[in-house]
Write a protein that binds this DNA or RNA. Structure first.
Length: 943
RNA sequence: GGGUGAGUGCUGGAAUGGCAUACAGGUUAGUCUCAAAAACUAAUGGUCUUUACGACCGUGAGGGUUCGACUCCCUCCUCACCCACCA
């Protein structure tokens, strides 16, 4: 008789039904402007061999609940899924498995896809793609070329972070604080290699200011601001003199060991025989009267001049300086870390002259000055900067107080604890004396600028973005280097096309062309008709020891003709980082459609890339693979193609809801924002920010509160959970376990609660199964009123990304419903109201909802395409509970009909009649506070 | 050092100015069973007393605002995450 809950019996059926009926296809791309659109996107996964993690499940379920809710609410929803399939992790896994990633990754994608389908995520699978499909990266490469033409890419030898284990260069961001590679944990070393570098710093200001309008978590915004690191300050030029300078009043004997040199007059300073100048960046020029030394980074050009012998000083120990610089270069982050804040350094033998007071300040080299921030030179004010004090203290440099401390403290500073970094009043500072530090800052900046010794500047922490990877598994960079053209000093920007491009885009690159050209002699982008430049199928693709890309070993790949002069030339052999594919994938979903191009292979399969038997692929097959073009419109320029796609996408973009882990707080989100801004500038997009709302999901830890990891043996496989409890129970549990953004350990025990809930849902709806056409119903008005309340709550909670509380309220409702049914010995809800409950459950538990909808209630169209229930109005005969307080302390509860709630006098009378209230009030003066339908409070007044 | 967030039963958590501990897990007792599991029922913050429509205490600590504070403000403590020799 009883029909037990067996999700395994029907989940597969509905999976296939949804797929067959394309239930979740995003409807007709145009003509929905009257309806609010919602582009709901989860950060697409890198399909690892391990399959879906329960953390993925949490993220995708939340996103799915949101998409389903919007879909039922009559919004036009785009909810796609794709694969971030290029990149190091896949390549490393393939190396380990001794296969080509091309042979391995598709299998992983299939696994992921199967798992996602088993969990009932409502993706429009027609829009699926992987970043490794030539048809997709054809555009990735084209975009690279556009950025190149925009002058936003340059090629330079750069000391890059190099992982000896992965044999590849890394971006700064991929190196952990302890100096190890984030992927493999190996120690990073520095290596000089030619790199393609993005001028992302050109966009620093806009990347910062456009954060303003975004509905993102405060923490992520703060991290982006912090990463961009805007600082407003001043660059001050100091004249450099050597120890030989013995001006009349400029007598300092042995400066490194302190002493108190006499000041020069302004005229004397300006007449000094300076041998050079050095520029220091500072945000605190107000303290400059207290500056007593200067520190330059080991990589600073001034130091190179000394080592190179260009600058000579009797006081300089060049050997010692050279040793220090070499040591600093070889020092790993780890070693630096180990040293802590202990200051090291060497005197350069030169002095800078403090413009303000003529003080002769020794110039030191120290690794605490960083070449990549400010100017690479710091002016040391030991009295008012802890780090400067530590340095001065270590080497016996004089400390001067120029700001009064708390309580007017003007004592001399001899200990770190006394260093005064806070606000205060200026002293010992000539024309600044008596001002507060902010006034003094403005005043002294004006002074420097007037004299021409300084210039207000803005400095950013953001560095240019190293884009080359010396690896196999990435999009080949579509550039060619021609030695002949290089010798002739020609670059792309000297070609007819290049000139035309610059002309057309002069508003953006105009003024910079000469600077941009300089480093790019001999470099030409591939012609559009040669895109995509496919990644050849290589049997052996491990990076050579040289650190160069594996593609550099494939002669047939390297050898090509110069697109400019036609002579022998070489291809770029570096590949793009996996950020490339993820930088614009959200732009592709809106126009990507398998229906339009059903014959399109997921990506170049093995059949199209027969592997050679040898170490490297044979000439013939490389050639074959390179000549195989995936071009959909041979007569259309790619720009026109892009614009056509853009027209298709316009109604969808930008992304309304972007859900994913906080680990992408800086990199992926910053890079995507950067690309979108450039595309906007090129008029290839109409919006400036890709993701309007961002929400983070918290990590799912293992039951032992550690990260899930194979090596700990604490991994929960979602497939096992689905097999035992069904997808709905897993989905409900992952939404119920904690607030969406909270980190939370997995608990199989707690999962039981959600499983029981789903089972009870099944049982209660089973009561509506009947051979006869009618089921006995005795409607429970109170229950209906409760139903209205939870529908209202769920409707407002879901768009606030609150998924745990809707489930709690549904559980609560189930408890009441069961009790009511039992009391009634009949159904307490009409079929209509039962369906209402089923609908609000549907986004969370789509399988059981569909099964009941179609099998019990005999509906013909999917519940997921039905409309979200209206929140019913509260009927007059409903009752409200009003708590009664005396002096703010709860004493009793009144239950009154809804219509009476308006009547304060009556409520008060009723409350005062209650024994529990009476005893505190009787015979005492009181006043009454009544908040309608909420609470009544009696305040006993003292006489 | 900087930034962001958080501190509520045995556990995950709910309540964002109005009945603190909803909902779920766990535990205890009971029903059913030869037994176990499942399921169901009940209890479950602390202290006290005259043991009930009972009192008092109770949301990291202390203070404030308010008729009323987990919620708002101030001071402090603790934890987590991110960044960090950033001039």
């Amino acid at each position: 008789m009883k029909n037990p809950y067996q999700p395994q019996k029907f989940e597969k059926k509905w999976q296939e039904y949804w797929e067959r009926n394309k239930t979740y296809r995003s409807k007709n791309i145009s003509g929905f402007k009257n309806k609010e659109k919602q582009y709901v996107l989860a950060m697409f996964p890198y399909p690892s061999g391990a399959g879906l993690h329960v953390g993925h499940v949490r993220n995708y379920t939340g996103t799915d609940v949101l998409a389903r809710f919007f879909r039922m609410s009559g919004r036009v929803v785009l909810h796609p899924m794709g694969w971030d399939a290029f990149g190091l992790p896949a390549e490393n896994a393939a190396v380990k498995a001794k296969v080509n990633p091309m042979d391995m990754v598709p299998g992983h994608i299939e696994t992921f896809k199967k798992q996602m389908k088993s969990l009932g995520f409502s993706y429009d699978w027609d829009r699926e793609f992987a970043t490794i499909e030539p048809k997709y990266y054809r555009f990735t490469q084209w975009l690279f070329i556009q950025f190149f033409k925009m002058g936003l890419l340059y090629k330079r030898n750069a000391p890059i972070n190099y992982c000896p284990k992965c044999k590849t260069g890394l971006a700064e961001e991929e190196v952990l604080a302890d100096g190890t590679h984030e992927r493999c944990g190996h120690k990073i070393v520095k290596k000089d290699l030619p790199q393609w570098i993005f001028r992302i710093t050109e966009y620093a200001e806009r990347l910062l200011s456009d954060l303003e309008g975004l509905d993102w978590p405060e923490g992520i915004l703060a991290m982006q601001r912090n990463w961009i690191g805007k600082k407003e300050g001043i660059n001050i030029d100091y004249k450099i003199v050597d120890g030989e300078v013995r001006h009349r009043d400029f007598l300092s004997t042995s400066p490194p060991k302190g002493g108190s040199p006499k000041s020069l007059t302004k005229n004397q300073v300006s007449s000094l025989p300076a041998i050079d100048t050095i520029t220091c960046f500072t945000t605190r020029p107000d303290t400059n009267f207290g500056a007593t030394f200067i520190v330059v980074a080991p990589e600073h050009p001034f130091v190179k001049k000394i080592i190179g012998g260009e600058l000579k000083s009797k006081e300089a120990d060049v050997k010692k300086i050279r040793e220090y610089v070499e040591k600093a270069a070889s020092k790993s982050e780890m070693e630096r870390q180990a040293e802590g804040r202990k200051k090291t350094g060497v005197f350069t033998g030169f002095y800078a002259v403090n413009n303000l007071n003529g003080r002769k300040m020794p110039i030191w080299v120290s690794d605490f000055a960083l070449m990549n921030f400010g100017t690479g030179a710091v002016v040391g004010v030991p009295g008012h900067d802890i780090r400067d004090f530590e340095f001065a203290h270590e080497f016996g440099i004089e400390v001067i107080r120029v700001v009064k401390g708390k309580d007017g403290d003007v004592s001399s500073i001899t200990k770190v604890e006394q260093v005064q970094e806070e606000e205060g009043t200026m002293i010992n500072s000539g024309f600044l004396d008596g001002m507060d530090i902010h006034k003094a800052t403005v005043k002294v900046m004006d002074w420097f600028e007037e004299k021409g010794d300084g210039k207000r500047v803005v400095s950013y922490h953001l560095r240019d973005w190293i884009f080359s990877r010396q690896r196999y598994w990435g999009e080949p960079i579509p550039m060619v280097y021609c030695e002949k053209c290089a010798k002739e000093g020609k670059s792309y920007f000297d070609t007819e096309e290049g000139k035309r491009f610059v002309n057309e885009n002069s508003n953006i690159i105009g003024g910079r062309v000469d600077e941009v050209k300089e480093g790019l002699k001999g470099w030409f982008p591939l012609s559009e008709k040669d895109l995509p430049l496919e990644l050849p199928y290589l049997k052996s693709y491990e990076p050579p020891e040289s650190g160069e890309s594996p593609l550099s070993q494939v002669e047939d790949f390297v050898k090509t003709k110069c697109p400019n002069c036609g002579s022998e030339a070489k291809r770029e052999t570096d590949t793009m980082p996996n950020w490339a594919g993820s930088c614009w994938y959200f732009l592709a979903f809106p126009f990507w459609n398998k229906d339009v191009d059903s014959a399109r292979p997921i990506f170049a399969t093995r059949e199209s890339h027969p592997a050679s038997q040898g170490h490297l692929e044979s000439e013939k097959t490389v050639h074959a693979s390179l000549s195989k073009r995936v071009s959909s419109s041979p007569n259309m320029s790619m720009k026109d193609e892009w614009l056509a796609n853009k027209n298709l996408s316009e109604d969808w973009t930008p992304v309304d809801w972007y859900l994913g882990g906080a680990e992408h707080a800086v990199l992926h989100l910053l890079y995507s924002r950067f690309w979108v801004k450039v595309l906007y500038d090129m008029r290839l997009l109409d919006f400036k920010e890709p993701f309007l709302r961002l929400r983070n999901q918290g990590m799912v830890l293992a039951e032992d509160h550690r990260k899930m990891s194979k090596s700990f043996g604490n991994v929960i496989n979602p497939d096992d959970v689905v097999k035992e409890y069904g997808a709905d129970a897993l989905r409900v549990y992952e939404m119920f376990m904690a607030p969406f953004n909270a980190e939370i350990p997995w608990s199989t025990k707690a999962l039981q609660g959600s499983f029981r809930f789903v089972k009870r849902v099944w049982e209660i709806f089973d009561g509506y199964r009947s051979k006869e056409s009618t089921v006995e119903v005795k409607e429970d008005k109170k229950l209906v009123s409760k139903l209205n309340k939870i529908v209202k709550k769920i409707t407002s909670d879901i768009p606030q990304i609150k998924f745990n509380t809707p489930i709690a309220s549904m559980m609560e409702f189930m408890n009441d419903w069961e009790v009511s049914n039992r009391k009634n010995s009949a159904q307490s809800l009409t079929v209509e109201n039962a369906k209402k409950f089923l609908k609000v459950l549907a986004p969370f538990a789509p399988f059981i909802a569909e099964e009941v909808w179609q099998e019990v209630f005999k509906e013909k169209e999917s519940i997921h395409l039905s409309s979200w229930p209206e929140v019913g109005s509260i009927s007059a005969d409903e009752e409200v509970a009003i708590p009664v307080q005396v002096n703010g302390k709860y004493r009793a509860t009144l239950t009154v009909p809804f219509e009476k709630a308006d009547n304060k006098d009556e409520i008060e009378k009723l409350a005062l009649a209650d024994e529990r209230v009476k005893r505190y009030i009787e015979g005492k003066k009181h006043k009454t506070v009544y908040v309608k339908s909420k609470i009544i409070n009696f305040v006993v007044l003292k006489d």
